[in-house]
Amino acid sequence: MTPDTPRVPDAPDGAGDRRSFLTKSSTLFMAGGLAAGYGTFAHVAGRFLYPAGPRATTWMFVADLAHFADGTSMKYRTPDGARVLITRRGTAEADASFKALGSTCPHLGCQVHWEPQQQRFFCPCHNGAFNPEGVAISGPPKEAAQTLPSFPLKVDKGLLYIEVPAPAGEEV
């Protein structure tokens, strides 16, 4: 309880340069502390309000590489039912040798298939076509600038795994 408490509402808080510097820096420090504390709380509140992100994913076993020859493709169904076409495009036992694309056309939901001679995925419903990377190159998907969804793949000890949305609920 120091006696320097201002009596008059508008009295300056201190006198002299040193004092004014102290006052200013303490004000700044206070503002910083308040912003840090309540700002983080606001961030927490924001995270609370923002809808939960995409469902957790899980790595699933697909095949052992010995049974998956270069140039071939295999069909895969994710736990939530999405159809995926996995192709092998290289002999190396590396992630880059494989590509997993959802085989459902983003236009109206037909199943696309791989046309090796054309090097493209083709959707027979409305003649949509996609390049090997899943980017639409003609037809309605091209006009809408759509792509086939892609799934991450990894090779581990000669086994191929795919990252897919984790299954939800009791039964799959």
């Binding site: 808080d13 201190g14 910083g32 502390g33 840090a36 504390g37 983080t40 709380f41």
Partner: peptide, 20 residues
Amino acid sequence: TITTKKSIIGVLGFLFLLSL
């Protein structure tokens, strides 16, 4: 003093951050 109070508030603010 006001200055002390402000400093304490600053410290408390960062402690709040820490608790978060």
